[in-house]
């Protein structure tokens, strides 16, 4: 099996995540789809790391995880706050910037 298959799998998962971001309206699911995309990237990094025999891919994947964790914390807090004030977790309702 060609190790490029991992990359192809990463591409597929990434696209699915992107479609989820675009199609779903529930902010929490959208967030999960973002995580899906990040994970797909991580898979690609890890596969590349193995293909090239360097550890950098894993290091970067590690950093991606850390940043994703931070992002989740803040993002979910924002979702909570919006839900509290607007009684809705739909991202279509968060349109205060539209006139």
């Amino acid at each position: 099996m060609d190790p490029m298959n991992y990359i192809v799998l990463a591409a597929i998962v990434f696209t699915i995540g992107a479609v989820g971001v675009l199609v779903r309206r529930n902010a929490i699911i959208v967030f999960m789809c973002v995580e899906l995309m990040l994970n797909a990237c991580n898979l690609a990094f890890v596969a590349f790391s193995r293909m090239h025999g360097g550890i950098e891919g894993q290091v970067i994947a590690f950093f991606v995880m850390v940043v994703a964790a931070a992002e989740v914390v803040v993002g979910l807090a924002i979702i909570m706050q919006i839900f509290r004030t607007r009684r809705s977790a739909s991202i279509d309702d968060a349109n205060l910037l539209k006139n």
Partner: peptide, 29 residues
Amino acid sequence: NQAPFLMVVQIVVYTGAVLMLFLFVLMLV
């Protein structure tokens, strides 16, 4: 893919912590 550390981190941090956070928020919502 020879990344044992990330495997553990993936399960502990992502599946364990991040996803649980999602579930908490889901329960709140």
